[in-house]
């Protein structure tokens, strides 16, 4: 099973230090980890650093991976005017670094990814015709089609309506369990983090201020300190922890 450990990870943009010595326990496949933090805390930078798109000191330790490219990354949604169908755009993500000839296995993987996310019926549509939410689901399919062992998702639910947010996070949790895949997702909805993620990392000003099981990490004290809100966490009628925000501090 794949594992990921961050050891004293730092990152710079020019002379500005964006991430400062991020060290985490080992995350194992089969889990979903939420990456939490206010705007400009360094969440996207951390993803880019893990992926190797940014240089810096420290080490990203991936062990137990069976593929050459175990990590896939879904950046925050960006529109595109490319004249490509949804199917082609997902196939394209699958084929990077491979030969120009598409094999039946590749088509099978594209079909599976679209079906996993419930967007198979969008396959023939042009990507430029999609709504923001649909584009976000296609972007998730582009990450999944790479058959990653570690999947990094940067605000995967930001453009989705509530129904699709719940649906996507449910699907991701199921896929993480079934495929022993480690998923790290940056989320702004702390309630979703409480409900769907096993562990949480909290960043503030480029520093890791908390890391552990989500229920241990997300506390009223942390919400007040990092997110400047007065909030309480109470079990709902089904026993799930529920976030109730009283007011901004």
């Amino acid at each position: 099973m794949v594992t990921l450990t961050l050891d004293c990870l730092s990152a710079h943009y020019g002379r500005s230090q964006i991430l400062s010595e991020i060290t985490t326990p080992t995350f194992a496949g089969g889990q979903i980890v939420s990456l939490l933090g206010p705007n400009a805390a360094g969440k996207s930078t951390l993803f880019r650093r893990i992926l190797g798109l940014l240089k810096g000191s420290g080490e990203v330790r991936i062990e137990g991976a069976t593929s050459e490219r175990p990590v896939a990354y879904m950046p925050q949604e960006t529109g595109s005017t490319a004249v490509l169908t949804v199917y082609e755009s997902v196939l394209l993500a699958r084929m990077q670094g491979r030969s120009l000839k598409v094999q039946p296995d590749d088509l099978h993987e594209v079909d599976r990814s679209l079906e996993d996310l419930g967007i198979a019926s969008l396959g023939e549509r042009d990507i430029s015709d999609l709504s923001g939410g649909q584009r976000q689901l296609v972007s998730a399919a582009q990450a999944l089609v790479q058959a990653p062992e570690i999947l990094l998702l940067d605000e995967p639910t930001s453009a989705l309506d509530l129904h699709r947010q719940i649906n996507l996070l449910d699907i991701l949790r199921r896929l993480a369990r079934e495929r022993e895949m480690l998923i790290i997702a940056s989320l702004h909805d702390i309630g979703h983090a409480l409900r769907f993620t096993d562990q949480a990392m909290v960043l503030e000003n480029g520093q890791l201020v908390a890391c552990g099981t989500t229920e241990q990490v997300v506390t009223p004290a942390l919400l007040r300190q990092v997110f400047q809100v007065d909030a309480r966490i109470e079990p709902c009628s089904r026993g799930r922890p529920q976030l109730i925000v009283e007011a901004a501090v």
Partner: peptide, 9 residues
């Protein structure tokens, strides 16, 4: 109507 195994492609 869902395309199967890349039929559309």
């Amino acid at each position: 109507n869902t395309p199967r195994e890349g039929a559309f492609y």
